[in-house]
Nucleic acid binder design. Structure first.
Length: 481
DNA sequence: ATGTAC
């Protein structure tokens, strides 16, 4: 049965409160997207989230929403601990702190093109990719791994991977507080030991890009972006460790939901009150996995810089590969938000949604205070990605959140079927995009046609005012899992 | 997303 939905304006839709819903749903989309969504499960998931105890504001869906485990991917939901609010592993996702970071450079595309093949090969060699990828040169002791879980990107910088100033340009400065590695299972720790500094599979990637369009000159200048410039994007998360933390937590949360008498329209929404031991334990284990992901992206950054230096024969001062920003899109976090004129400390779940804090927010890096927090939106490997900044409207309407990517339109299976008879790598190479992949099947699953055009997604968030477009980046070389 | 089920 289709979910009842009412149009608010050109890019906003309301799912009215009914049945067990404690609040209404708010979906950012255009007419065409809603028509597609009516045939899928995702809107029902928005409605299910609205039934959870202690939800504050609305159950929110971004234009890249699609079906996920319990909560939709592309969803935002905030909960109040003082009103029975809950935390749910399904509201974060299996890849805890999956996120994106963007490195700038002082290079023009013309300088890199002649060495692009060499660069792609070297990056592919130096950053392990693919499901199950690991590093032969770095297997941590469990004791050291626990330090990674406590310290996140700080651990990486302290051990010579990257620069102190990188930390200023990471969400939460690259470390979630209150991580408790003791709450992470032996199995999760074992899975993570040799996976730090690896890309993984699926839609994760490492991309050399060129800035092809500047939409906001002033903001671009503040971020250090210019047309024709080479940038690097890294999209990955907490690998097998985060997966295992989520999987372990789901078992606990199913028991907890029953124990605390929480009605679940879908077992995959299993959760526990934020004030309960189970809720606190999940958040502490999740923070450890999130810190692993921050460290992961920081290590990869170090090897990307090293690779550029080696291949192009230039030093750090010439390349100036500074970190523009690193932002999470699968996480639950304590944040201060104003609700009906009152400041409240809420647990904001963003699952396939990106934090987009406004100008002058204290958590926006000092250098970017005037323009807002950078928001990194990857598209598909054949088209482009976007850089946005957060807005006051996002802070008011979506707990400071916006979309996270293009959003799939074809299942992995359907994409593979469509790619049959095509040589995707050759076709992309003909368009000036080099692909290096650990697995050819992954390339087939990741064809452009498998995704919405990310332009349509960011145009909606820009039109709605929950993000401001700064620049568009086109891929030159893509390292895939 | 994920040693794509232990």
């Amino acid at each position: 049965m289709p979910v009842k939905i009412e149009q608010i304006d050109a890019c906003r839709w309301r799912i009215p409160r009914e049945g067990a819903m404690r609040t209404e749903g708010l979906v950012f989309a255009d007419q065409a997207m809603i028509e597609v969504l009516q045939k899928e499960q995702a809107l029902e998931q928005v409605r299910n989230v609205a039934t959870l105890p202690g939800i504050v504001g609305r159950s929110i869906a971004m234009p890249d929403i699609h079906w996920g485990y319990g909560f939709p991917i592309g969803g935002v939901a905030a909960f109040d601990p003082d009103d029975g609010g809950v935390v749910s592993p399904g509201g974060v996702g299996y890849d805890i702190n999956c996120g994106v970071r963007l490195l700038r450079s002082e290079l023009e595309v013309s300088e890199v093109r002649p060495r692009l093949k060499e660069l792609a090969d070297a990056l592919f060699r130096n950053v392990p990719s693919g499901v199950g990828s690991h590093r032969r040169d770095l297997k941590l002791s469990v004791q050291e791994e626990c330090k990674v879980l406590k310290e996140g990107a700080h651990w990486a910088v302290r051990n010579g991977f990257g620069r102190a100033e990188d930390l200023e340009h990471i969400e939460e400065r690259g470390t979630l507080p209150d991580a408790e590695p003791e709450l992470v299972s032996d199995r999760a720790l074992e899975r993570g030991r040799n996976q730090l500094g690896t890309l993984g599979g699926g839609n994760h990637f490492l991309e050399v890009q060129v800035v092809e369009e500047i939409h906001d000159e002033q903001a671009a200048a503040v971020l250090g972006l210019f047309a024709g410039q080479v940038t690097v994007s890294i999209h990955t998360g907490s690998r097998g460790l985060g997966y295992q933390v989520c999987d372990d937590s789901i078992r606990t949360m199913l028991r907890a939901a029953a124990k605390y008498g929480i009605h679940l329209p879908d077992r995959q929404l299993c959760c526990a009150p934020l004030t309960s031991p189970e809720g606190k334990q999940y958040l502490a284990a999740m923070a450890g996995a999130a810190n692993f992901a921050f460290a992961n992206r920081q290590l990869i950054t170090h090897w990307v810089r090293e690779t550029f230096e080696q291949v192009l024969g230039k030093g750090p001062a010439q390349l100036r590969m500074g970190l523009i920003y690193d932002v999470c899109h699968n996480i639950a976090k304590w944040e201060q938000h104003e609700v009906q004129g009152q400041k409240r400390r809420l647990c904001v779940h963003r699952k396939g949604a990106t934090r987009a804090f406004p100008p002058h927010h204290p958590d926006t890096p000092a250098l970017y205070r005037a323009i807002g927090q950078p928001v990194l939106i990857p598209g598909d490997m054949g088209r482009y990605s976007y850089v946005l900044v957060g807005t006051p409207e996002a802070f008011d309407e979506t707990f400071g959140s916006t979309c996270h990517g293009a959003g799939r339109v074809l299942s992995r299976h359907a994409a593979k079927k469509q790619a049959r008879g095509h040589n995707t790598e050759t076709e992309l190479a003909a368009r000036g995009i080099l692909v290096r992949a650990a697995n050819r099947a992954t390339v087939a699953e990741e064809i452009s046609e498998a995704y919405k055009d990310v332009k349509d997604v960011v145009n909606i968030v820009a039109q709605a005012g929950i993000g401001r477009i700064v620049a568009r980046l086109r891929p030159l070389a893509v390292i895939k899992g």
